[in-house]
Design a protein around this nucleic acid. Structure first.
Lengths: 195, 195
DNA sequence: CCCTTTATTGAATCAATATTCAAAAATAAA
DNA sequence: TTTATTTTTGAATATTGATTCAATAAAGGG
């Protein structure tokens, strides 16, 4: 009997995020991922069925985390909608500030996956956006947010805007502080949403 | 002497937009583009150096058009900043409403090109965003737009938000009217921007 | 210390497709 | 017509890189 040394599954995933971020999914070579992870090329296939499964795993874990944390926020009884909205923005920024490479992969490859195998994760993605929508709707019911706005649309708009800013930041983290971006986004969105 | 029949260069470009939209750039096959354009595989290479040049040409033409038209708007003396802002949003929506496939390619492949050969077209892209920024700055000088906002940031935010909405619409044009999207975007942004 | 089991390896395979190019076809001028 | 020139063709080539798998290594139980 031989036992597994270290956590190659995780090592490979982390290496893949870096390589995908650097070269883009389609130009990323499996042997480069293996090299960075410190394993043999073949080992990658012991842990992941194929290249696409690696990408899928990255996204599944990310959306899972985001969904669970936003759920916590959305369901909290003693926080008002405006505050929840703030926390949602923070959640996204905080998630990516810890891993710029993940932010790049997220922005660049999300559309590809959505096109390639929607059934596999449209679910998570939609569930997350639905929670965001619920928060805004709560604000509307309570009379703090504007009723003139189509919430489904604005949730996508805000999400798209944040995505682009995150991407720019992740590609060049020194050019602007994420804190500054975050402040502006919150200010702009709340001004747009509030009565 | 033999003369060219029709306009294969254009036919190929139009076919490429459709195929890229449908399969994504990386999964698009040259022979499929040729087939749709009604030419032989080899003919594609008579008109375009390689696959990437086709994509580059699509973007160059698009950005060129957008830049020139926004320039017209931005430089006009007898339109105020708020109206110019409106027209800018309209310009983007009008461009893509005529060609949903182009909208999909635009959203999906822009980041790839930006990463692959920034030098080749960062220029156009930046020039367009700069014009948008100038419009907002004009509104600030005239006291109609809010000074608390970082214009460079918000121009990206708005652009990113519109991009995502366009993408959703282009993938499923019947689900929402682009007119409705446009109204909401204008309303939300102006509320966010105005004093 | 051997044996069995499981983990790891990486060179060889193999499929996919972008690109090339020699041949064929079409046109216009002579 | 014939010829010269340019366009078009699509089968053949060449490359690349994902995936496989037989061989090797390590670990634990007996």
């Amino acid at each position: 009997m031989r036992t597994k040394e270290g956590n190659k599954e995780q090592d490979i995933l982390e290496a893949a995020i870096k390589i995908f971020a650097e070269s883009g999914y389609h130009n990323a070579k499996i042997h480069k991922i293996a090299e960075l992870a410190g394993v043999a090329t073949g080992s990658v296939y012991v842990y992941y069925e194929n290249k696409e499964m690696i990408l899928l795993t990255i996204f599944a874990k990310l959306w899972d985390k985001l969904f669970l944390e936003l759920k916590e926020i959305a369901e909290s009884k003693d926080i008002d909608a405006v505050e929840k909205f703030d926390m949602m923005i923070d959640l996204l920024f905080d998630t990516f500030i810890q891993d710029p490479a993940l932010a790049i992969v997220f922005v660049n490859e999300q559309n590809y996956l959505l096109q390639k195998s929607p059934e596999k994760f449209t679910l998570y993605y939609e569930k997350f956006l639905d929670l965001g929508e619920a928060i805004v709707n709560e604000g509307i019911s309570n009379g703090v947010f504007n009723t003139k706005i189509d919430v489904k649309m604005i949730r996508s708009f805000i999400f798209g805007g944040m995505r682009l800013l995150l991407h720019q930041w992740a590609n060049n983290p020194d050019s602007v502080s994420l804190h500054h971006i975050r402040q502006n986004v919150k200010y702009f969105c709340k001004k747009g949403l509030l009565n």
